[in-house]
Amino acid sequence: MPKPMPLNTRLRTAAELRFEALELRRTILRMAADKGEGYVAQGMDIADLLAVVYYRELDYDPADPAWSGRDRFVLSIGHYSIALYAVLHRIGYIPETKLDDFGLNGADLALSTFDDQPGVEITGGSLGQGLGQAVGMALGYRLDKHPGRIICTLSDGELQEGSVWEAAMAASSHRIDNLVAVIDCNGIQADGPTVLDIEPIADKWRAFGWDTREIDGNDIEAIMAAFDQLRERDGRPKAIILRTTPGKGIPTLERRDRAHFVRVDPNEWALLSEELESNNG
């Protein structure tokens, strides 16, 4: 079963990962361009995490998405599909031709994730369904003495779903330590800024028995350090609270009030692209 990932897809340095995050942001912009709207802000805010996860943390086979020896990335927040599809394209699972059809009628790549696409582990559109499935996968791996890990990404708004906490309680109760939950706290949800008082988020995860770190989620070095600190298989599930900025990397999007599902005028795309390049050049 163990089949190590080719070394050329494992980026080790922060500079390399930062470059890959920029490539992801470029890809995301390209997928969204000319469609007038989309979950672009979420894609931008999570690009740094995905660069670290896919180019440093996960073991997988670029030639075989179904390789049984793989680590698994479970994206609970299905509306972040634009970011997941961007990275799955970058690692070779999704051909370039599919990117431009993203979100269009009949396209394979929809505005929300479906697990019939290569590399997509769960169908994630109905929030609150990812962590429990990640717990099940972690239990399955443990039963098989599989060395792999499960990394599950949720969002702060999603923490309002009770099923998240059912899964959080089960994970620590079953002493699962091959699972990392990453909570993208970008402070926005469908109705605007986070609509309930959900802080203190890190304390909640600690109270549920999770070994927890809270970091700047758009700081590549901080993300690398958090994963490094949470490698130990010590009978505790791990959580990383990512504090991110919606639209990160594109100042116009970072300033936009209604960032959950952004509207972009046709003439704005070129400007956004210029901002991305000048801001990260």
Partner: peptide, 23 residues
């Protein structure tokens, strides 16, 4: 055997996750 506690949503989610690892 996995006891998930009084949590029917989690029961089905954990079952689905286990199934995805070949169980």
């Amino acid at each position: 055997f996995f006891q998930v506690g009084m949590a029917e949503a989690d029961l089905l989610l954990i079952a689905a996750g286990l199934a995805k690892t070949g169980k």
